Computed example of a mutant assay.
Amino acid sequence: MSLVVLDPDGRHAADYPAWLSDAGLPLRLVTGTPVDHPGYAEIRVVERYERSAEAERAVLDLASRCQVSALVALAPGDQLRAGGLRDHLGLLGQGRAAALPLADAMEAQAVLLAAGVPVARRAAVRRVSDLYWWAHKWGYPLAVRPRRGDRRAVLAELGDRAALRAFAAGPVLPEDPGLVPSLTVEPLAEPAPAPACLAAAVEAALPVDAGHPYSVTAVRSGENWLVHDVRYDPAAHSARALARAQAGLAPVPARSEAEES
């Protein structure tokens, strides 16, 4: 039996052996950064960690040689990867279906709409013409954001047609529609933490898995609040608490009880 840890940049690599010592199991680390630590039974350093399937292959190879009891992955970019691996290996914890709405803005919107939770307007951008269509439909100003990754980032604020043309001619949207990155467009607004009643409605639609907390932001529409975004948010608890929860060693404490990372 082993615990496998995914840590793309080695940020917590020196801490996991102490955090998970009471599991009584060997730790095996898969990382994109060279690490030398005596607390691991094995360390796999993979090239192009973020842009290839080498991390997944490393975990599957480890699982072929030793039984894996749990997979720990704290980095936001590892959530879908870890979920798919848990599904494939039959491990407890968050699977890919639960991770997807917390990683993909359009998936979150679809799940919440299906549950009757009010959401802010947002549309996928697959080609330049999509921007013109939604500008016609909604008017200006508009905000362009990543569909996945750091969805708080605003890649462009489009205040008028001239700004849209300038953005469309820039490097983010290449001429080949097959190369357009995964983006969304929405009416420009300033998100705020969601009020408690709206956050509770989101939690009813998207139950929190142990070790995978998320935050909810909202925007106002007249007198009403609409969900703007739901995203995996490891800052809601200490890294140690989340690692132990994902390893099945302890429940996640309330935020007020969480220790500092």
Rank of each mutant, 00 (worst) to 15 (best):
R121Q: 04
A135Y: 01
K137G: 00
P191E: 05
A194M: 04
V46N: 12
V219I: 07
L102F: 02
G149T: 13
P253N: 14
A162M: 08
G10A: 04
Y132P: 14
A162H: 10
P181G: 05
S238H: 01
H212E: 01
P207C: 09
H136F: 13
G211N: 10
V180S: 09
R65I: 10
A53S: 13
G248V: 12
V144R: 08
A245Y: 00
R44W: 03
A114N: 06
R86M: 08
R28V: 12
L102W: 00
R65Q: 13
A115K: 11
G90A: 13
A169E: 14
D229S: 11
V128N: 09
L91V: 09
E175R: 14
L27I: 03
S2C: 12
D130L: 09
A108D: 00
V46I: 15
A254K: 15
D209T: 14
R126I: 07
S221P: 05
P234S: 06
P76Q: 02
P253M: 00
R127S: 10
V208G: 09
R161P: 06
L60H: 14
P76E: 05
L242S: 06
A192P: 06
R86K: 03
Y232R: 02
P177M: 12
Q94C: 09
R11N: 07
R121F: 01
V45C: 08
G32M: 07
D87Y: 04
S2D: 05
E260I: 11
T33N: 04
Y49N: 07
D15S: 15
R220T: 04
Y132C: 13
S129L: 13
V180R: 15
M106K: 02
L112Y: 07
A53M: 09
V4D: 02
R244C: 11
A192N: 00
R147I: 13
A218H: 04
L60I: 02
E107H: 11
G211V: 00
V144P: 02
Y132D: 15
P251E: 14
A14M: 07
A243T: 10
G39I: 09
D22V: 09
R145A: 01
G159I: 07
A70H: 02
V5R: 11
